[in-house]
Design a binder for these strands. Structure first.
Lengths: 150, 150
DNA sequence: TACATTGGTAGCATGTTGCAACCGTTATGA
DNA sequence: TCATAACGGTTGCAACATGCTACCAATGTA
């Protein structure tokens, strides 16, 4: 078969995450959901994605438990797509990608959208990988245990 | 045209990151690089990816400045692929995906690979999104400024 | 009632993925 | 040194996924 390779039975959590998200569109849909988009049309206008693609992606995100389809909040008969707790837990992933992008793909002073603390309007602190006892860890300070039962 | 949509000129850093990484294979290649893989064959065996796909992905990661092709460390005439500083900065992204996967796609007690602190062999602390003054932020505590010049 | 918006589906052309076969170069070992 | 294996790819093909456009039914609005 030539269907795209799946990773949903991998023993690596990174691979399963990647598989669950589906593709880049899905991740940008999630980003827009964090940003307040709820309706099919909002996602479509914001992303410029073809409607058939969006239909499939939304459906797969709902199936994967990342989004949930609920009655529209304005009382109309339409439906809306909102993040589940599992979807909200993707926040750190989105923030990590955002910070990596800011640091590497924008010229100094080049305008870009920015995520800020709602209360103070300030930029966020860069994410840090910490050990159990709070030391800051670089990639070289860590290692992967191939398989563990806990 | 029907070519896959690019996001490299988006004003959103998330979109540019997504574009720079390329596809899921690329991200898993980076994961393996963090895990110590360096050689073409190592990536190929570890991922089970077709060699033509791997060739293209490695080339694009090198072109994007995530990996660098260097002479083999064992003195042979072959080459190796190692993470650049930009590539190492993807660490938080990989860790975020790993933690999301661990929390959501493994049954309790189901075996999976695990990233640990090399010094103490302990699991890492969950990533936290923090405000400039150190408060823990949920998605709802943040908002996106659409475009900013700094 | 007429018209616009919403949220899709269907069909088609093209691009991308995955598989298997092949190939030149480099290491190895008898 | 000569044969053989490992390495790091390239090529061609078939199937699948993506993106575009047109279309459509249900819902909202003037």
């Amino acid at each position: 078969m030539v269907t795209r390779t799946r990773f949903d039975d991998s023993e690596c959590p990174v691979a399963r995450s990647v598989d669950a998200i589906g593709d880049w569109w899905s991740l940008l849909i999630v980003r827009d959901a964090f940003d307040g988009s709820r309706r099919f049309g909002e996602f479509q206008r914001s992303l410029g994605v073809a409607k058939n693609i969006l239909t499939v992606r939304l459906r797969s995100l709902v199936a994967g438990g990342v989004l949930e389809s609920v009655p529209a909040s304005d009382g109309s008969a339409y439906r809306e797509y909102v993040l589940t707790p599992k979807g909200k837990a993707l926040f750190t992933v989105i923030v990590a990608l955002r910070q990596w992008g800011e640091q590497n793909f924008f010229a100094p002073g080049e305008p870009h959208s920015q995520l800020v603390d709602r209360r103070q309007g300030q930029r966020l602190r860069p994410l840090e990988v910490l050990s159990a006892d709070g030391r800051r860890l670089d990639p070289d300070d860590t290692t992967v245990h191939k398989v563990s039962t806990q």
